[in-house]
């Protein structure tokens, strides 16, 4: 009898559609993300770019083992959002801010994972990439995905004059002797 099949299960790219936040949890998560990345200066708020929908794709539904990054179980994120609900849904944004600060200082690792997901989700959204293009001198050419276009066009070429000035040397095989007897490069006048 052959032993059972071992299938190479890889984490599905882009996560899975298996999990959905309740409307209430989505609102809390939106508020959390908006606290991390406030809108302004031409950039949208995370809640405007479907951040909770993005994060949901990386939540492992109840009853399944959270095997891969971000290893976020549905029960775990649900409980977390419930614990932040009062503060984050309060009309006074200072309460939300303080609650997030308290979360960060009391459970740094759990906070870091959620922050990472917010940053990953936010900065990969087409509307945010558009804002980067429009608002940042260094980001005019930035694209949402590296392929298929790439960035070869306009990439600056080597400066031939600089190349011609490069100095350098190396030890030949027969020049290698014990260090005690080996002149340093500076002594040999070889250092650039």
């Amino acid at each position: 009898m052959p032993t059972p099949v071992s299938i190479s299960l890889k984490p599905p790219m882009g996560g899975t559609p298996d999990y959905r936040f309740s409307e209430r949890h989505a609102r809390i998560l939106d508020a959390f993300a908006d606290t991390l990345i406030p809108a302004g200066e031409g950039f949208p708020a995370p809640s405007e770019v479907e951040i909770s929908g993005f994060i949901a794709r990386y939540v492992t539904p109840a009853g399944m083992e959270p095997k891969w990054y971000p290893r976020l179980a549905a029960e775990q994120i649900g409980a977390r959002l419930d614990s932040l609900a009062d503060a984050l849904l309060d009309p006074d944004p200072r309460r939300g801010y303080e609650a997030v600060r308290a979360f960060e200082s009391s459970e740094a690792d759990a906070f870091a994972v959620l922050r990472e997901l917010v940053y990953f989700g936010y900065y990969s959204h087409a509307a945010v990439v558009r804002a980067i293009n429009l608002q940042l001198a260094a980001g005019q050419d930035y694209r949402q995905t590296p392929q298929p276009a790439g960035y070869l066009e306009g990439l600056e070429a080597w400066d031939q004059e600089s190349l011609a000035k490069v100095r350098g040397t190396y030890l030949r095989t027969e020049e290698v002797v014990p260090l005690a007897f080996q002149p340093t490069f500076a002594q040999k006048g070889l250092s650039a």
Binding site: S6, I7, S8, L9, K10, P11, M13, G14, G15, Y58, K67, W68, Y69, P70, L117, F120, Y123, S124, H125, A126, Q144, T145, P146, Q147, P148
Partner: peptide, 27 residues
């Protein structure tokens, strides 16, 4: 490969992690 996917940066922590302990593939 993740290069044409919006999630290309995040996916480097999953199927494209360099650490087999993270990927945990059958291979």
């Amino acid at each position: 490969r993740p290069h044409m996917s919006r999630e290309w940066e995040l996916e480097k922590r999953r199927a494209w992690s360099h650490d087999p302990n993270v990927r945990q593939g059958g291979e």
